[in-house]
Computed example of a mutant assay.
Amino acid sequence: MKTTLIPLILAALLAPLPASAMDVIKGEILQGWVRPDGNRVAAIRMTMAPGWKTYWRAPGDMGIPPHFDWAGSTNLSAVAVEWPAPTVFREENLTTIGYKDQVVLPLVITTPQKGAPVRLQTTIDLGVCLDVCVPAQLHLDGIIDTDATRAEPAIAAALAQRPYSAQEAGVTKATCTIRFNNGDLELETAITLPDTGGPELVVIETGQPDLWISEADTTRHGGTLTSRVDVAHSTGGPIALNRSHIRMTVFGSKHAVDIRGCTPG
């Protein structure tokens, strides 16, 4: 895909949401529990109308990544969203990644005042899809004041659905090679790990939201999974990649694996 197509794709994705689709997604805050360190685990549950889906944090070549704005929250200094392993939706000439019908997104909340309630206020900009994909927005506001220390089942189940870590999956090596090809920047990763079940897909994230990443061309040779992507700046600016910030998620038919950082190839 040429980078000149990016504005056209975004314009199509950001078309006005049809009035009939305004109620296809609902959100609610789940209370969760208090961790031994005094911080909290909570969650956001999003429920979609039958057949509708929403996107994972890296949605694929033509998706709308979700964005969380926590402005207005109190007794909250940081929030980490823990993503359950999503589904890879393969259609003709298009691959997207996300969740269908319902998803619980666990939140690990760092609280400056231990033991005090948390006012959780967030605006979530995200995409929802049926036959077409359109933008939506959720506004959630709630008080988290539980003193429970036992895990809440729905949240615990979502945490258990996260991809395996590199260590858990038996990853022994992950390298990144950066090169230029006819003026375009290419990033190639090579991951040594046991087969996750074919066909395998690798999704590469740079940790920089202003960079566009193409869908990976992925092949396996024995114990090594190799992927190549094109990288472009959304505004045409310079590109600087930090290998320690590169995140690779392998999706196979058996399980997914989350690999953070790579060494020079």
Rank of each mutant, 00 (worst) to 15 (best):
Q113P: 14
G115K: 13
A116C: 10
A116F: 15
A116E: 14
P117G: 15
P117A: 14
V118T: 11
R119Q: 13
L120M: 09
Q121W: 15
T122D: 04
T122H: 05
T123L: 08
T123W: 06
I124Q: 08
I124D: 04
D125P: 01
D125G: 07
D125C: 06
D125V: 10
L126Y: 09
L126I: 07
V128H: 07
V128Y: 11
C129R: 07
C129A: 08
L130Y: 14
L130D: 08
L130W: 10
V132K: 01
V132M: 03
V132S: 00
V132Y: 01
C133R: 09
V134H: 01
V134C: 05
V134N: 02
V134T: 06
P135Q: 10
P135V: 13
P135H: 11
P135N: 08
A136T: 13
Q137T: 13
Q137V: 15
Q137S: 15
L138N: 02
L138C: 02
H139D: 12
H139Y: 15
H139E: 14
L140V: 04
L140R: 11
D141W: 15
D141V: 10
G142E: 09
G142H: 02
I143Y: 03
I144Y: 10
I144K: 07
D145C: 12
D145L: 10
A148M: 09
T149R: 12
T149G: 10
E152K: 02
P153S: 05
P153H: 02
A154E: 02
A154I: 11
I155Y: 04
I155M: 05
A156F: 05
A157W: 05
A158T: 04
A158S: 06
L159T: 00
Q161Y: 03
R162K: 11
R162L: 06
P163S: 12
Q167N: 01
Q167D: 06
Q167T: 08
E168R: 06
E168Y: 01
E168A: 09
E168M: 11
E168L: 07
A169G: 01
G170F: 14
V171P: 00
V171W: 03
T172C: 04
K173W: 03
K173E: 04
K173C: 04
A174Y: 03
A174T: 03
A174N: 03
T175I: 14
T175R: 07
C176V: 07
C176G: 08
I178D: 03
I178A: 03
R179N: 01
